Simulated scan of single mutants.
Amino acid sequence: CGFPSVINDYMRNIQAEEQERVKPEFYERFIELVTKDALRQGKSDRTMQQVVSAIIKIFGSRSDFRGLAVEIEEPISHPTVIDYLRLMEDNFLVQVLYSYDFAKKRVRYKAMKKIYFTDSLIFHSFNSWLHGKDGYPYSEEFMLDEDKVSLLVEGVVCNHLARVKEVPIIKPADRFLWFYYDARKELDFVYQRENGEYLGIEVKYKPRVSFKDVAAINMPKLILSKKEFDAKGDIAIVPVYVFLCLLESSVKNL
């Protein structure tokens, strides 16, 4: 979580040995702010809820805007879905990750995309809102599923990578951060360094990791593990917490 007030509350509750480490009002306040902002901009909080629900169903997976619209139970056009998604992007709630075409050296804006929540608190607030559950207990229940946790970690990595070089308006993240897929393989993240070279990054937040867990693409690659360190050829395995600690953030980033 990147919200200082929530982190402070969490630390206080640990010291006080409280069972509920994050108070319900933080989740409630967040949802209230999001829905009020949507209403101020002429949006429907019900439609917002449905779009959020659809994003949660597919987050971290390849999809397109039409596919996102299909996940919504009520008939909503995909231009409407895009409108709400852009609003969420502008409010730093989600990040849309585009794929990259190495042959043409350009972003594939019309191809499949991935959507990540920019912060774990944002995800858990939305998830508890959709299911009518208390935020912290429901987040603990969610965190018991290792595959779901891995998706959240992917989102955290995505957000941190974007902040390394991102300069709002002038240099958005889609100028240097993408993912890659073809008919046979996929790579979670492709990061372009200042010298133009590419770095492939695969998140495997699980107890055991193999060098085979990353797609065979001709570039240096990192596998971000739960605890393991290792290296072989152009592949390094590094714990995700170490990787994130070593990343710098753009001075222009908010």
Rank of each mutant, 00 (worst) to 15 (best):
T80S: 10
T80D: 03
V81T: 02
V81N: 07
V81D: 06
V81W: 06
V81A: 03
I82F: 10
I82W: 07
D83F: 04
D83R: 13
Y84E: 06
L85E: 03
L87S: 11
L87M: 15
M88E: 08
E89N: 07
E89F: 04
E89H: 02
E89V: 07
D90L: 11
D90N: 14
N91D: 11
N91L: 08
N91Q: 12
N91T: 07
L93D: 00
V94K: 02
Q95R: 15
V96L: 11
S99C: 09
S99V: 01
S99F: 06
Y100P: 00
Y100R: 03
Y100K: 05
Y100Q: 00
D101N: 14
D101Q: 03
F102K: 06
F102N: 07
A103W: 09
K104M: 11
K104Q: 13
K104A: 14
K104I: 07
K105E: 13
K105Q: 14
K105H: 13
K105F: 04
R106E: 12
V107D: 07
R108V: 02
R108G: 02
R108Q: 13
Y109E: 09
Y109W: 13
K110L: 15
K110D: 13
K110C: 02
A111Q: 08
A111D: 14
A111R: 07
M112N: 15
K113Q: 08
K114V: 09
K114W: 02
K114R: 14
I115R: 02
I115W: 01
I115D: 06
I115A: 03
F117M: 08
F117N: 01
T118D: 09
T118G: 05
S120G: 12
L121H: 08
I122R: 03
I122A: 07
I122G: 04
I122E: 08
F123E: 06
F123K: 01
F123N: 03
H124T: 13
H124Q: 05
H124Y: 14
